[in-house]
């Protein structure tokens, strides 16, 4: 059962050369009770995808197609006005990227919480505060103290937790975290991840974590979706995807992660740079110019995201077995990284 079903979602941005897709035909399920990790480099469209789950793509962007079915709410792309506002926060809790800095510095946390309650027309504000305190306490914060604090009195890790309190205080069943551990040091990152897992389990949420750090996400996620150039290129159960990556990009991403175990010399950074809105390939596979497995067909037809075995999908023309046994991307040291836009 899925709490959120995204189907064929396309999000476009207006540029000087017309409307360009930042997310192109993405389909993704957030399964009830599971943590889904959405991994991609900067510019892969992962944050845009996450924002469209609130139907809050900022101008000059728009949802150009597809549906987002949220359990108990309906198709989010068709909602507007008050219904949409109720869904945001009420059904879907969102913790923004750099939420460490997204609190109002002039108001105490408690006051901002009351503002949130009033704007959502919560009748019983006392109960809201009580629930926030309870959430904060369970996350290892001193609820009373935190509500009386100003933003600057809290550390980065604490603010991140406050962000989660805000996202969940209205009893949202879906929790979305955008880069929750960026700019945190290792100890804070570990405790935030720990807390996300705990809160997720306690409240039986469906959680989506967006990150560029495949290492951090692998610690807590149940499922993994990999995004590149606005497309979801592979997804499946996390352990399985990490053990047997069948998309060359996933494989390269895993190989490019600095790890505390394993062979230092075996690790390889990804060559080249990730595409952005204007440089992403218009035809064929979006990854082909960085792909060691690319064949002729990759330049012509774009591979579809298809189920190739139970619970796993991939968008690649090359056989899974070839990718699995083939080489990781070839090294970068000394070789000039391609800088010019792919022609």
């Amino acid at each position: 059962m899925s709490e959120v079903e995204v189907r064929d979602l396309t999000v476009e941005y207006q540029t000087s050369v017309g409307w360009l897709p930042a997310v192109a035909g993405a389909s993704l399920d957030l399964r009830a009770g599971q943590i889904t990790g959405l991994v991609g480099e900067s510019g892969s469209g992962k944050s845009t995808l996450a924002l469209s789950l609130l139907n809050a793509v900022p101008a000059p962007g728009r949802i150009a197609g597809g549906t987002i079915e949220v359990a108990g709410v309906g198709d989010l792309t068709r909602l507007g006005g008050k219904q949409l506002r109720k869904a945001r926060g009420g059904a879907i809790g969102y913790v923004f990227q750099a939420s460490q800095n997204s609190l109002n510095p002039l108001k105490t946390i408690g006051r901002q919480l009351l503002d949130l309650g009033r704007s959502h027309e919560v009748g019983d504000l006392r109960a809201l505060i009580a629930r926030a305190k309870d959430l904060a306490n369970r996350m290892g914060l001193d609820g009373d103290r935190v509500l009386d604090s100003y933003q600057h009195e809290l550390s980065g890790g604490m603010r991140q937790r406050v962000g989660i309190v805000f996202a969940l205080v209205l009893n949202a069943k879906v929790l979305i975290l955008d880069e929750p551990t960026t700019a945190l040091d290792m100890l804070s990152q570990a405790s935030v991840l720990d807390i996300v897992r705990k809160v997720h389990d306690e409240n039986q949420l469906s959680t989506l974590i967006i990150t560029h750090d495949i290492g951090a996400i692998s610690e807590i996620a149940d499922r993994l979706a990999v995004m590149y150039g606005g497309r979801i290129v592979e997804d499946g159960p996390l352990l399985d995807v990490l053990r047997r990556p069948t998309h060359p990009y996933t494989k390269a991403l895993i190989g490019a992660t600095a790890r505390i175990t394993g062979d230092v010399d075996g690790a390889r950074a990804l060559p080249g740079r990730p595409p952005d809105l204007t440089t992403v390939a218009r035809a064929g596979c979006v990854f082909r110019d960085r792909c060691p497995f690319a064949v002729e067909v990759c330049a012509q037809t774009e591979p579809e995201l298809e189920t190739f075995e139970s619970g796993r999908r991939r968008a690649c023309h090359v056989e899974p077995s070839t990718v699995l046994t083939g080489p990781v991307l070839t090294g970068t040291t000394g070789t000039p990284a391609a800088v010019g836009e792919p022609a």
Binding site: M186, L187, D213, A216, S218, E219, L242, R243, R259
Partner: peptide
């Protein structure tokens, strides 16, 4: 504690048996 905080790439790595964390902030 610092080393315990390094994320474990599950599927490829197993967490260390003595993993620990600071008791306070």
């Amino acid at each position: 504690c610092l080393l315990s905080a390094v994320p474990v790439m599950r599927g490829l790595e197993e967490p260390g048996p003595d993993r620990t964390a600071p008791t306070a902030a």
